[in-house]
Design a protein around this nucleic acid. Structure first.
Lengths: 235, 235
DNA sequence: AGATCAAAATGGTTTAACCATTGGGCAGAA
DNA sequence: TTCTGCCCAATGGTTAAACCATTTTGATCT
């Protein structure tokens, strides 16, 4: 019949008011909030309490705080950073294992490539081919570090080709979190890089012929092989 | 050559130390931190600064703070709540649309059901059939509210059948965030509920015969139809 | 003009006090 | 004895005032 009376901590009220103003666009990204000593007056609270509210907003990724004169709280463009951090916490806590993540990635990357193939423009294909050429050059000159960077950039670019930020975020967060823990076990040798090159050749070819199913199958297999190698070395 | 010297705000150092202790298991879930006035001495800092650190840890979902005597900061089991909150922020900010979410859901739910089918135990099937019976009873008595609850419970249960928390989290967060904004447009009528019942009949049958591809196709179509109806009413 | 330094604005930290909530214990009534 | 009501102490929540650290601005000197 009755709901529990709301526990009202002052700083939470401040957080809600500012967050509301940001989400409704009254405080657009890039705009600066008044100085702490002014805000304190506006909210009729103490500086300590106000600062607790700012800490929360900062942690949520809604504002960024700069030092010095003309410093202060600046409204940020909302991004995926806090999401990534939370995910990393989940993984580090052991509530989610790398095997779980990897399994998920294997499934999702197939769908992602399929969607990317459907929506690929000629410019996209061209861009991918340029990147693939760069990767091949790295292979020829045995520049493994840049090969890895290019490889990652290609995966990321395929993510943007979906034109769907959810796929992009999920791919990036899964990829980052897997590699953060696996990179020590990444043996970069001729064999593996060549395999990578061949796979991407096939994927680009499948995309060119608009064969989403084929592209999906290739990348699924590609990611699966990576998964097997890593779990083999790190059981 | 040199990295920028780290901006060391005192409260950040406190956050890191406590977070470290939690993640390494030195502070297991359920354990209680010392009182603020003790922690303040241990870290050799002021209470205000210490409280800023606690606010951050609270926002990260690592601790929970209780009031009164015997109150204090209690280490929480790390869960998906902060992740869900960040995702909700992204959606509310307009950086991610419901169409994006829904498209993602259509893809992921298929993979999820496929995996669930592979791993379904006879007990799982039995559980699903019980829930389906309950849903049918709700349909017969026109109890739409409980029908919806049962429907959601079945989706969630299929998520747990994957035995992979990543699938479970992604499914739950996507589902929650879609329904939070769509529920006003949910017309619960005989036709739609019957359709739901029929779909689940088919899915359970496919699971029984271990036909993951079929189960996947059915649920994908199911979710797609939901998506079309919602976007039709709310373009 | 350019270099140098001082001042002011602003976030970061400290201190000390008081308020609010909660749980436990104690005294008195039933 | 047992229940009720009250008070007390521990603990988080809030306030106030001061000082420190960083950074920009601009005035001054060369």
């Amino acid at each position: 019949m009755f709901k529990r009376a709301k526990q009202n901590r002052v700083f939470q009220d401040v957080v809600e008011q500012i967050q509301d103003a940001i989400l409704t666009g009254k405080l657009p990204p890039g705009s600066k909030l008044p100085a702490e000593r002014e805000l304190k007056e506006m909210f009729n609270t103490s500086r300590g309490t106000l600062r607790e509210a700012l800490r929360v907003l900062e942690q949520k990724g809604l504002i960024e705080i700069k030092l010095g004169v003309n410093g202060g709280a600046i409204v940020k463009q909302i991004g995926t950073d806090p999401l990534m951090e939370s995910l990393a916490l989940l993984i580090q806590s052991g509530n989610v294992s790398l095997a779980h993540l990897s399994e998920f990635r294997i499934k999702i990357e197939g769908s992602l490539v399929e969607l990317a193939t459907e929506r690929a423009t000629p410019q996209d294909i061209e861009k991918l081919e340029q990147m693939q050429a760069r990767a091949r050059h790295c292979y020829d000159t045995r520049d493994w570090e840049n090969f890895l960077k290019t490889d990652e950039a290609m995966h990321t670019y395929i993510g943007t080709m979906t034109r769907n930020p959810v796929f992009q975020f999920v791919q990036k967060s899964i990829h980052d979190n897997i590699h953060r823990y696996y990179q020590d076990f990444l043996p970069m040798n001729r064999e593996r890089t060549l395999e990578n090159l061949t796979d991407f050749d096939k994927i680009i070819a499948a995309m060119k012929s608009k064969d989403g199913a084929a592209a999906s199958a290739i990348i699924t297999d590609h990611v699966q092989r990576f998964h097997d190698k890593m779990t083999g070395k790190h059981p």
